[in-house]
């Protein structure tokens, strides 16, 4: 572990950043999530030891998660620092997630083929910066080809869009 210590002088900022390790962050997040689950279970009856109710298992599991989350956070002082995680693929990941969300919204409005066609054009042209010809050919082949295989041959019900496309 390489810790940043230049003599004993630590600026407040670097002190904070040295405290923020990956495990501390993730452990705290898990513990907070567990607390959230316990809070959300308040409306459900807990039941008893002999007759567990609907909230029994969730609360029990959330308590376990809370314990492990706290454990991870407490012992995570020497894990990697948050700042050392590199987020170089972040823009790509966001773009991909974005197109996933969009396709899901569009799937039952536009139909399968058009949604996938648009999605692929966006990914291949917009994100991966390929040529138009390749993009269009690839997107057409994949969207219509997969539709043919599933809808026509395997009879998987897929949503149709306007004009029955």
């Amino acid at each position: 572990m390489t810790s940043v210590r230049f003599g004993n002088k630590l600026t407040p900022m670097s002190k904070l950043s040295a405290m923020l390790t990956t495990d501390r962050i993730s452990g705290t997040a898990l513990a907070l999530f567990a607390l959230g689950v316990i809070w959300e279970s308040r409306r459900l009856p807990l039941g008893t030891f002999r007759v567990p109710g609907p909230a029994y298992m969730p609360v029990l599991l959330a308590l376990l998660l809370l314990i492990f989350g706290v454990l991870i956070a407490l012992t995570g002082g020497r894990a990697e620092r948050l700042a050392s995680i590199r987020w170089t693929e972040w823009p790509h990941a966001v773009a991909i997630l974005y197109i996933c969300i969009f396709s899901t919204l569009a799937l039952e409005r536009l139909g399968y083929r058009l949604t996938i066609l648009f999605g692929l054009v966006f990914l291949v042209k917009g994100v991966e910066k390929k040529g138009w010809l390749l993009t269009v050919l690839f997107a057409l082949a994949l969207s219509f080809g997969s539709f043919y295989l599933f809808y026509t041959l395997l009879r998987v019900p897929l949503p149709l869009g306007p004009w029955g496309i």
């Binding site: 409005r109 054009v121 042209k125 869009g161 306007p162």
Partner: peptide, 16 residues
């Protein structure tokens, strides 16, 4: 691309 796509999905498609 996004703008045309969104316009299409939410405004035009329901009309068909």
């Amino acid at each position: 691309i996004i703008v045309t796509f969104s316009l299409y999905v939410f405004l035009v498609a329901p009309l068909h």
